[in-house]
Computed example of a mutant assay.
Amino acid sequence: MRILLVDDDIELADMLGSYLERESCLVQKVSDGTSAVVQALSGQFDLMVLDVMMPGLSGVEVLRRVREHSMLPVLMLTARGDDTDRVLGLELGADDYVPKPCTPRELLARIRAILRRTGNQPQPAHETDVLREGPLTMWPGERRAQWGEQTLELTSTEYSLLELLVRHAGQPVGKDVLSKQALGRPLARFDRSVDVHMSSIRQKLSRVAPGRICIQTVVRRGYQFIKA
Rank of each mutant, 00 (worst) to 15 (best):
A36L: 08
V37G: 02
V38A: 11
Q39C: 12
S42W: 00
G43W: 10
F45C: 00
D46V: 01
M48W: 02
M53V: 11
M54H: 00
G56L: 09
S58E: 08
S58I: 06
G59N: 03
G59P: 00
V60W: 04
L63K: 08
R65V: 07
V66T: 00
E68Q: 14
S70W: 02
L75I: 02
M76K: 01
M76R: 04
G81L: 08
D82Y: 07
D85Q: 10
D85Y: 12
R86D: 05
R86N: 06
R86E: 12
V87F: 13
E91C: 01
V98I: 02
P99L: 01
P101F: 10
C102W: 03
L107R: 00
I111T: 02
R112W: 12
R112E: 11
L115V: 12
R116C: 08
N120K: 15
Q121M: 12
Q123N: 11
A125W: 11
E127C: 06
M138H: 08
W139S: 06
G141V: 05
E142M: 14
E142G: 04
R143Y: 00
R144A: 12
Q146P: 01
G148H: 03
Q150P: 07
T151W: 11
T151Q: 14
L152E: 01
E153G: 11
E153W: 15
S156K: 06
E158Y: 07
S160N: 08
L162W: 03
L162R: 03
E163R: 11
E163Q: 13
L165G: 03
R167E: 03
H168I: 10
A169I: 07
V173H: 01
V173G: 02
G174C: 11
K175V: 10
L178T: 08
